[in-house]
Amino acid sequence: MKIGNQSIETYFILFGLFQYGQMDAFLFVAIVILFSVALMGNIILILLIRLDTRLHTPMYFLLSQLSFIDMIYISTTVPKMMTNFLSNNKTITVLGCEIQTFVFLAIGGTEALLLGFMSYDRYVAICHPLHYPVLMSKKICWFMVTCTWLSSSINALVHTLYVFQLPFCRSRIINHFFCEIPSLLPLVCQDTSQYEYTVLLSGLIILLLPFMAILASYARVLTVVFQMSSGKGQTKAVSTCSSHLIVASLFYMTTLYTYTRPHSLHSPEQDKAVAVFYTIITPLLNPFIYSLRNKEVIRAIRRMLGGYNTIINYDYHALY
């Protein structure tokens, strides 16, 4: 069997998130809008942190890294899904599928680890404020970011190389809207139960351990916060931590649901629905949760808008 001029052995077929009904067209438009808003929100937040010197702190440095990761994360899956829907061509080359799997695993793992380091930043800032400049120096921040990228990329490379050397002989149809290891394993015509334990172990290390660290950090933070005599300090600390905890919980719970369940319990429809949360919803929510619930970011937006208004007014008066 051939697709165009290429043998099907060089392709996978992505079943996709949508078919071609009226409701699916509406959902497709909604996904496109969410994708555009997510990109715009993360770009604005990165530029804001870059341009406003008051936001040149460890917390916002890590936040800018998170926004950068989210831009790549959502761009790894959604554009291909959009292209397949519009062209009615659901194929993806084996190489393209391999690259998508690697990038998705690497970026997802990096975000999981980075969220853990961000909780450590808040823990140090609130529980050990006098040691904050030392414990969260610029060198340590870069070390954290480098570790997240390097360790996650190595993990992704190992899994990707292993999975794509397995024999795919049952079918070439991936019942998903992107190439993801849980959706690829049903196509393998040999026993993968031993490898699934490796996936489980990786998921526990990269997903569960940072999530537990976040919960432990914020348990300690809340203890310290409620001992504060300043109501304003309590409100600020709780607001910052709750924002991070909302994002982290949504991301970790959905990814853990996908990557720590046995293969026999996976359902393609459930997997696709859950994947929407950690591939689209989380990158969309991150910049807005952090900006709308953070007074410093709101002030920075006002300063930037005020600066633009001043320039516009100056140019207007210069012309007239």
Rank of each mutant, 00 (worst) to 15 (best):
A30T: 08
V94Y: 05
Q270N: 14
I126D: 04
L95E: 07
F85H: 11
K272N: 15
Q227D: 14
C147P: 03
M118R: 06
H131R: 08
L47Q: 11
I281Y: 14
A156W: 00
A106H: 01
I214Y: 04
K272V: 13
S137K: 11
T279I: 12
C147Q: 10
E296L: 11
L204M: 12
I31A: 09
V199C: 07
F277Y: 14
P186L: 02
L215A: 15
Y73G: 02
I206H: 08
S153G: 02
G21R: 06
H263A: 14
I174T: 08
C169K: 10
S171M: 09
Q190V: 14
E269Y: 11
R299P: 01
R299Y: 10
L39K: 00
C97P: 08
L204N: 03
T76L: 00
F85K: 03
F35R: 01
T254P: 09
Q194D: 13
S7G: 07
I301H: 00
M40T: 10
S193E: 08
V276Y: 09
M144H: 12
P58T: 05
S193K: 06
R50I: 05
Q234E: 15
L63C: 04
M144A: 06
I69C: 00
N286F: 12
L51A: 12
V221Y: 06
I206A: 08
V238M: 14
L55V: 06
I46T: 09
V37H: 00
Y73V: 01
R302L: 11
S7H: 10
E111R: 08
S217F: 15
M81G: 02
T235S: 15
S242V: 15
I181D: 00
L285K: 11
S291C: 05
P268Q: 11
M59L: 13
T235I: 11
L39F: 02
F117T: 12
A30Q: 04
L184Q: 09
L55F: 09
T223K: 15
F143W: 10
Q270I: 13
L27T: 01
L27R: 08
F117H: 07
E196T: 14
T240P: 04
F211V: 03
I44T: 02
N89T: 07
L245Y: 11
P167L: 11
P167C: 07
S242L: 10
I280Q: 01
I46P: 03
M40C: 06
W149N: 05
